[in-house]
Computed example of a mutant assay.
Amino acid sequence: MNWGRHRHGHHEHRDRYHHGNLREALLEAATQLIRENGPNGFSFAQVARHAGVSPAAPYRHFRDRTALVAEVARLGFEKFESELRGAWRDGEPDPRQAFSACGRAYLRFARTHPAVYSAMFEPSLPLDEEPGLRAASDRAFDVLLQAAERLCADIEEEQRPPARMVALHVWALSHGIASLFVVGNGARSIPGSPEEMLEAAVLIYLAGLSRAATKTS
Rank of each mutant, 00 (worst) to 15 (best):
residue 1 M to V: 10
residue 1 M to S: 11
residue 2 N to C: 08
residue 7 R to E: 11
residue 8 H to E: 14
residue 9 G to D: 03
residue 15 D to V: 12
residue 16 R to A: 15
residue 21 N to M: 12
residue 27 L to G: 05
residue 31 T to E: 08
residue 35 R to S: 14
residue 35 R to W: 15
residue 36 E to D: 13
residue 37 N to V: 04
residue 43 S to R: 07
residue 46 Q to R: 09
residue 47 V to A: 14
residue 48 A to E: 03
residue 49 R to Y: 14
residue 49 R to N: 13
residue 49 R to Q: 15
residue 52 G to V: 11
residue 52 G to M: 11
residue 55 P to L: 15
residue 56 A to N: 04
residue 56 A to K: 03
residue 59 Y to M: 05
residue 60 R to Q: 06
residue 61 H to S: 11
residue 63 R to A: 15
residue 67 A to P: 13
residue 69 V to T: 03
residue 70 A to Y: 03
residue 74 R to A: 14
residue 74 R to H: 10
residue 74 R to W: 01
residue 75 L to P: 00
residue 77 F to S: 02
residue 87 A to C: 07
residue 88 W to S: 15
residue 93 P to R: 07
residue 93 P to A: 09
residue 95 P to C: 04
residue 97 Q to M: 12
residue 98 A to I: 01
residue 99 F to H: 02
residue 100 S to T: 06
residue 101 A to Y: 12
residue 105 A to R: 02
residue 110 A to Y: 12
residue 113 H to E: 11
residue 115 A to N: 07
residue 116 V to Y: 01
residue 117 Y to M: 04
residue 118 S to A: 12
residue 119 A to Q: 02
residue 120 M to L: 10
residue 121 F to L: 05
residue 122 E to P: 07
residue 125 L to F: 12
residue 127 L to E: 13
residue 131 P to Q: 05
residue 135 A to N: 03
residue 136 A to S: 11
residue 142 D to H: 11
residue 143 V to H: 01
residue 143 V to L: 10
residue 144 L to M: 14
residue 149 E to C: 12
residue 149 E to F: 02
residue 150 R to S: 09
residue 152 C to H: 00
residue 153 A to H: 12
residue 159 Q to T: 04
residue 160 R to S: 10
residue 160 R to K: 09
residue 160 R to Q: 12
residue 162 P to Q: 06
residue 170 V to S: 04
residue 170 V to M: 03
residue 171 W to C: 13
residue 172 A to G: 11
residue 175 H to K: 07
residue 175 H to Y: 08
residue 179 S to E: 07
residue 181 F to L: 04
residue 183 V to A: 03
residue 188 R to V: 09
residue 191 P to L: 02
residue 193 S to R: 02
residue 195 E to T: 09
residue 198 L to G: 01
residue 201 A to C: 07
residue 202 V to R: 01
residue 206 L to D: 07
residue 206 L to N: 03
residue 210 S to M: 05
residue 215 K to L: 14
residue 215 K to R: 09
residue 216 T to C: 06
residue 217 S to H: 03
